[in-house]
């Protein structure tokens, strides 16, 4: 623990703040990385001289230690440093050429214009501090369902991911998502803005399936989540599915040098979400 940290921890406790938990510091102490020397400075005063001393001291320190894991395998090819790309084509449902999207109050649309997308993010807090670490997008190519996924393994690769995804979006693309109007699209808009890139989703038609699903089945199903919709409408039952709420931790663990296992499960979850988007869309279009 750095002296400044110890100092602040002490002050915060005195101010009635609950004890700080520092998973990294604890882990490091367990690994014997923490140095006893750190504590000798912990009770020094806040005079400017000491503050400067602390800063110099902190300057020389190395970054945090990682809980190293040997399982570091993230699937796909590396498009650029820190940006992994996977592409799979599946023989999935057979889409009609022109899809009647009237159920979502959208004009009939050629199936090749559809771009299904879903992001995996570092949390649900919203605002400028939440980011997508994975963007999945799927479309119909020659009658087959193409699933493409971008995953970043470093923060710095975010801009490259955003650029790559932007290239997949056409001027006449029709977006398909589940709660994307309120969640994924605004979040990506924020990320494009922070990366100083143009937002490719701006102004596109967008079929957000959550709303028509709610209109039809609210009150009949226990909830209107995508997992419920896919089970009710498509009979999909997921096995070994990583709950969406665990996605942030999966990525963070990998980012800090931990195992990639759960990150791979996030990708599988994301791919299934994309398939279910297409399935629910076709199912609802066919009902009209």
């Amino acid at each position: 623990m750095s002296p400044l940290h110890a100092r602040l921890r002490q002050l915060r406790t005195q101010a009635g703040h609950p004890q700080l938990t520092s998973p990294l510091a604890t882990a490091r102490a367990g690994c014997g990385v923490a140095t006893a020397k750190d504590h000798t400075l912990a009770n020094t005063s806040l005079s400017p001289e000491v503050r400067r001393l602390l800063q110099r001291h902190a300057h020389l320190k190395r970054g945090p230690a990682y809980l190293a894991s040997t399982d570091r395998d993230v699937p796909g090819i590396e498009l650029s440093p820190g940006l992994r790309y996977t592409e799979t084509c599946v023989d999935w449902l057979k889409p009609p050429v022109i899809i009647d999207a009237g159920f979502a109050r959208v004009k009939p649309v050629h199936h090749q214009r559809l771009l299904h997308f879903d992001t995996e993010t570092t949390g649900l807090a919203g605002g400028t501090g939440t980011r997508a670490f994975m963007i999945g997008a799927a479309d119909w190519v020659d009658g087959r369902f193409r699933i493409r996924q971008l995953t970043i393994t470093s923060m710095a690769a975010e801009a490259a991911m955003l650029r790559t995804f932007a290239a997949w979006v056409g001027d006449d693309s029709v977006l398909v998502s589940y709660n994307g109007k309120c969640y994924d699209a605004p979040l990506l808009a924020t990320r494009y803005r922070l990366a100083r890139l143009a937002n490719p989703l701006l102004g596109l038609a967008h079929i957000d399936l959550l709303h028509p699903v709610r209109r039809h089945w609210k009150g009949q199903w226990e909830n209107c989540r995508l997992a419920t919709a896919e089970r009710q409408l498509l009979g999909v039952v997921r096995e070994d599915d990583l709950p969406g709420s665990e996605a942030p931790a999966a990525w963070l663990t990998y980012l800090r040098g931990g195992a990639a296992k759960n990150l791979r499960r996030v990708a599988a979850h994301n791919a299934q979400d994309l398939k279910s988007l297409a399935g629910v869309l076709l199912r609802m279009a066919g009902m009209v």
């Binding site: 623990m1 750095s2 400044l4 940290h5 602040l8 700080l20 520092s22 998973p23 990294l24 510091a25 902190a58 320190k61 970054g63 945090p64 570092t122 949390g123 649900l124 807090a125 400028t128 501090g129 939440t130 470093s154 923060m155 710095a156 942030p248 963070l252 980012l255 800090r256």
Partner: peptide, 22 residues
């Protein structure tokens, strides 16, 4: 660095990014 140890920031090179879900 304090915030990094707390686990809310992630350091990559010279850049400190928010990482917590809060």
């Amino acid at each position: 660095e304090v915030l990094g140890e707390e686990g809310v920031l992630h350091r990559e090179g010279e850049r400190w990014e928010w990482i917590a879900d809060s």
